[in-house]
C-alpha cells in the first residue's frame, strides 16, 4: 500500500468519524443529562436527510436544504420530547427502549407515507463537487473534506457551549445531579427540551450532509445508530470528549480495517479466501475494539463522574 493511498484512507476514516460524532454527540448528551436511551435518534438523522432533499429539490439550493434539515430535525426532536419522551424519564431503560423503538416505526412509516418507498435525489452542491488536489499528489473529494471541516467546527462549537456558556453549565449540572438543579430553580423541563432538540439538530445535520453522497431512503438511520451506540459506549456515556475520540477511533478502525485487512490476509492465504475473510473480519473490527476498550475501561474512555 502506497503512502498516498494510506493518507487518503486516513482522511476517509476521519470523515466517517466526524459524521459519527455528529450522531453520537446528541445521543450521549441525552443519555448523560436525562438518563434516556433514545433509539429514535437514527430517525432524526433520516428526518434531516429527507428535509434537506425535499428543500434542495424544491429550491435548487443545497445550503437552504441544510438549514431546513437543522430546523426540521430540531423541531421533530422538540415535539417528540414534549409529547412522548418527557413521560419516560422516570421509567426504567426497558420502557424507554420500547417506546423509542415504537417511535422508529412511527417515523419510518410516516416518512414512507409522505415521500414514498423509493430513494430521493440529493446531490453534492456544484460548489463542493469533484475532487481537489492536496499536497503530495492526493486527489480527494472536496465534499468529504468539507464534511470533516464542518464536523470539527461543530465539535469546537459544542465544547465552547458546554464549557463557557450558561446553558453548558446547566447541562453539566444536569449530568451530575438532576434533582439538585431543579431544586435550585432551573426550569429543568425546558432544559431537557433544549438539549434534546440540540442533539436532534446535530443528527439531522449529519443525515443531510451524508445524504448527499449516500442514498436518502427510509431506514437509513438505523445502521448509523448502531455505530453511534458503539461510539458512546467506547467514549464513555455522557461525555462529549469521549464521543469525539470514540467517533474518530471507530471511523479510523472501520475504514482502515476495510482497506488493510484483505491485503494483510493476502500475504498468507489465497486471494479469494483473503478477500472474504478479510472483509468479514473488517466488519467485526469495531466491535472487537469496543470489547477491548470495555475490558480495559469498563465504563468507557472518558466516563463522566
Amino acid at each position: 500500500m502506497t503512502m498516498v493511498l494510506l493518507i487518503e484512507q486516513i482522511l476517509n476514516g476521519l470523515q466517517l468519524g466526524v459524521m459519527l460524532f455528529l450522531m453520537s454527540a446528541g445521543l450521549t448528551l441525552v443519555f448523560g443529562v436525562m438518563g434516556l436511551i433514545n433509539l429514535a435518534h437514527g430517525s432524526l438523522y433520516m428526518v434531516g436527510a429527507f428535509a434537506c432533499a425535499a428543500v434542495a429539490t424544491a429550491t435548487g439550493s443545497f445550503f437552504l436544504g441544510l438549514l431546513a434539515s437543522l430546523a426540521a430535525a430540531a423541531a421533530a426532536g422538540a415535539i417528540v420530547e414534549m409529547t412522548v419522551i418527557r413521560r419516560l424519564y422516570a421509567r426504567d431503560h426497558l420502557d424507554q427502549v420500547l417506546a423509542t423503538f415504537a417511535l422508529i416505526l412511527v417515523f419510518s412509516e410516516g416518512t414512507r407515507w409522505m415521500f414514498g418507498s423509493f430513494p430521493l435525489f440529493l446531490d453534492v452542491p456544484d460548489l463542493l463537487s469533484g475532487p481537489i488536489s492536496l499536497p503530495g499528489g492526493i486527489q480527494y473529494p472536496l465534499y468529504r473534506l468539507a464534511i470533516i471541516v464542518v464536523g470539527l467546527c461543530v465539535a469546537a462549537g459544542l465544547f465552547w457551549l458546554i464549557a463557557k456558556t450558561r446553558l453548558g453549565i446547566r447541562i453539566r449540572a444536569g449530568e451530575s445531579d438532576r434533582d439538585m438543579i431543579a431544586a435550585l430553580g432551573v426550569d429543568i423541563s425546558r432544559l431537557y427540551t433544549i438539549v434534546f432538540a440540540l442533539g436532534a439538530a446535530l443528527a439531522g445535520l449529519a443525515g443531510a450532509l451524508v445524504g448527499a453522497i449516500q442514498s436518502v431512503q427510509v431506514g437509513m438511520g438505523e445502521p448509523v445508530l448502531i455505530l453511534a451506540f458503539v461510539v458512546i459506549v467506547i467514549g464513555g456515556i455522557g461525555s462529549i470528549k469521549g464521543a469525539l475520540i470514540g467517533a474518530l477511533l471507530v471511523g479510523l478502525t472501520d475504514t482502515l480495517g476495510r482497506a488493510l485487512l484483505p491485503t494483510v490476509f493476502g500475504y498468507f492465504m489465497d486471494p479469494i479466501n483473503a478477500t472474504t475473510v478479510g472483509a468479514s473480519l473488517a466488519s467485526m473490527l469495531i466491535y472487537i475494539l469496543m470489547a477491548g476498550v470495555l475490558l480495559w475501561r469498563p465504563s468507557g474512555l472518558f466516563k463522566v463522574a
Partner: peptide, 16 residues
C-alpha cells in the same frame, strides 16, 4: 477484488 458489507453506505475506502 473486494467484498463489502451488505447494506454498507460509504465506499470511500473502496474507491480509494
Amino acid at each position: 477484488e473486494i467484498y463489502t458489507q451488505l447494506g454498507q453506505t460509504d465506499y470511500a475506502a473502496e474507491i480509494a
